[in-house]
């Protein structure tokens, strides 16, 4: 029962990772770049909400709604000023530029808010404390359920957006072949800017959940980036629903790992990620058929 409960908590945790990873997955899907400042942007979003809550005393969810337009504009501007330029010059430049950006964001947050840890758990209302005891060993927390439902809604909405709206079609066309999309009159600059705007907005949602679930500080970003990237890779790079599945797989691996030893939680997630990475991209594909051929040759003899 403890294992079942751990797996259930892992699904809730994984839904949070999936939300964090969603923006990363969008940007990779549309532009083939990984934004190394993604985690820091999520944490920046958390600080924006923190400031709003501090000054007005509203609930964290209302603060998120207020922060959302700021984040959309931020994403749009980020694309036009930094990322667009980096896209033109090779595959390493976006990584280098966003890594530099990541250091800038972390240290600006450090300057503005001191290294103290913060949380928005107190200003999110009853949802942070509520839970249902299903059986003696199995409990469902209200927050976990909220995160899971929101995650599914976000991915569902994105699916609808991509398959039903004009902007969504343009995004898919640009992702498929930006030059060909330009030929039929799609403004790929604008499409890229909107993709980044969405990615940053959803990162802020990840920041909200981070701030409510636990605590954050100016250097929380890199860890969030690693978890988000792990979710994207485990689910398969370029697959939207895969990212949701990957996030949940990562969350379950971490909570099951914690059953072995509390210090083993993060390690279990890393190991799952490395195994998938090797199997899918690191030559595992060559290795498996070779092993199979070898086995078949043995069997045939």
């Amino acid at each position: 029962m403890t294992l079942l409960n751990a797996a259930l908590q892992g699904i809730f945790l994984g839904a949070f990772y999936a939300v964090l990873a969603c923006g990363l997955s969008i940007m990779f899907g549309v532009m083939r770049i990984i934004n190394l400042a993604h985690g820091d942007i999520a944490v920046f979003g958390a600080y924006v909400m923190f400031v709003i809550v501090e000054h007005t005393g509203v609930s964290a969810f209302i603060a998120f709604a207020a922060a959302l337009p700021v984040m959309v504009v931020l994403g749009y501007v980020l694309q036009l000023t930094v990322l667009e330029r980096s896209l033109k010059s090779g595959i390493l430049t976006p990584l280098l530029a966003t890594f530099g950006l990541s250091i800038v964001i972390q240290n600006l947050l450090q300057l503005a808010f001191s290294p103290d840890v913060r949380s928005l758990g107190g200003s999110a209302g009853a949802v942070t404390t509520g839970s249902w005891q299903v059986t003696s060993g199995l409990s469902v927390s209200a927050l976990g359920l909220v995160v899971l439902v929101v995650a599914v809604l976000v991915f569902g909405a994105l699916q609808l957006f991509l398959s039903r709206t004009r902007m969504g079609w343009m995004m898919r066309a640009t992702a498929e072949d930006a030059d060909a999309a330009e030929l039929v009159g799609i403004d790929s600059r604008g499409v890229y800017a909107w993709a980044t705007a969405f990615a940053v907005a959803i990162a802020a949602l990840g920041g909200l959940f981070l701030a409510i679930r636990s605590v954050f500080d100016p250097v929380s970003g890199p860890t969030q980036l690693i978890f988000a990237f792990e979710a994207v890779v485990i689910g398969g790079m370029g697959s939207l629903w895969g990212t949701l599945v990957g996030g949940i797989a990562l969350g379950v691996a971490q909570t099951l790992g914690a059953q072995i030893h509390p210090q083993f939680a993060v390690m279990a997630g890393h190991l799952l990620f490395l195994v998938v990475l090797i199997a899918r991209y690191g030559g595992g594909r060559d290795f498996l058929p070779r092993a199979r051929r070898l086995l078949l040759a043995r069997a045939g003899r």
Partner: peptide
């Protein structure tokens, strides 16, 4: 065998492990 970001973050995770 990993490309660009996969290599960059893959190495980062190896360092973390």
């Amino acid at each position: 065998r990993l490309r660009a970001a996969q290599f960059a973050i893959g190495m980062w995770v190896i360092a973390e492990v």
